[in-house]
Amino acid sequence: MTTEKHNTAMGGAHRFIGLAENLERHAGTPTAAEPPNVRGENRGYGLVFFHLEQYHLSTVISSGLRFQPLGADPAQELACTVYKEQAEAARHLVDVTSELLVQSGTHLVPDQIVPNENPLLPDTEFYGVLASGHPLFPPEFTRFTDPDGTEQLQVYTLLPVTLGELNYILDNGVTALRQQWARFEVDVFDLGRPSVA
């Protein structure tokens, strides 16, 4: 009886054994963490900061969305990778998107655009994010499986998109925008990058 209650309280946390090591293997060294109650009440997720020295990249990953009733199967967490100097902007993007999902009780799907009426970051043209696989890390970062090989978690990478790019997607689709990014060799990790549309 006690064991049964304990397992229920854990919310199936045993499914995610090895997740922290998997994230570290790809995203780099953990450098900081922000608890769920950083603003007072529990927002339902924390944030963990990673640094990958080899590429001078910082990745901010949510921690806790997988236990929220978002209707996602498999569960989800969010990530944003930028250059180290821009880590605070990545923190903001993951935070506001995670907060939106928790408040609305919904989840993301591949290539979903999450638009905003105003710039998501001050002094930029970024009006939304694109939910994506990671442009640099291998698929094992995006799709976490348990020891039996069953997929338990998807980590969606948030790629900031400009207002022009949002409109371009509406007219031409996400694949066309990715082709534009490739054509102009856009560095999607650089928040100072120009818009391609």
Rank of each mutant, 00 (worst) to 15 (best):
A75M: 08
P115K: 11
E85Q: 13
P138D: 07
E41W: 04
F16T: 13
V161H: 04
N118P: 00
P30A: 07
D171H: 12
G28W: 01
K84E: 15
S98V: 02
F137Q: 02
P74E: 07
V188E: 11
L100D: 05
L120E: 02
H92N: 09
V186D: 03
F50I: 05
F49G: 08
G44I: 06
T142R: 07
L121Q: 11
A197V: 05
L47P: 03
N22W: 02
T31P: 00
Q68K: 11
P138T: 13
A72H: 05
F67K: 11
P74T: 10
T142E: 12
G71W: 02
A9P: 03
R178S: 06
V38Q: 14
L158T: 04
L177N: 08
M1G: 14
S98A: 15
T145R: 14
T175L: 14
A87V: 14
H6E: 13
A27R: 07
F126V: 15
P35F: 05
N22V: 01
T97F: 03
R178F: 07
P122C: 06
L158C: 05
H92M: 11
V82G: 08
V186A: 14
V60N: 04
L177Y: 10
N37E: 14
R178D: 10
L52Q: 13
H56R: 15
D95V: 00
P147Y: 10
D187E: 04
P30D: 04
V186W: 00
G18C: 04
V82I: 05
S62M: 06
T2D: 09
Y55I: 01
L65W: 03
A131M: 05
M10Q: 13
T8R: 10
V161Y: 05
E165F: 04
L191C: 07
K84Q: 14
L191Q: 09
L136N: 06
E85M: 03
M1W: 06
P160K: 14
L158A: 09
L121M: 13
V188G: 01
P30V: 13
F184V: 15
T145I: 08
L57T: 03
T124K: 03
K84R: 11
L121A: 14
Q112S: 09
T2L: 12
R183P: 00
L23E: 03
Q103F: 06
E88Q: 11
E151W: 08
E4P: 00
L170M: 12
P74V: 10
E34H: 05
P135F: 06
G11F: 08
P194T: 14
H56Y: 12
T2I: 10
L130C: 09
E140N: 09
D95P: 00
Y156G: 00
A32R: 10
F141D: 01
E117V: 12
N167M: 00
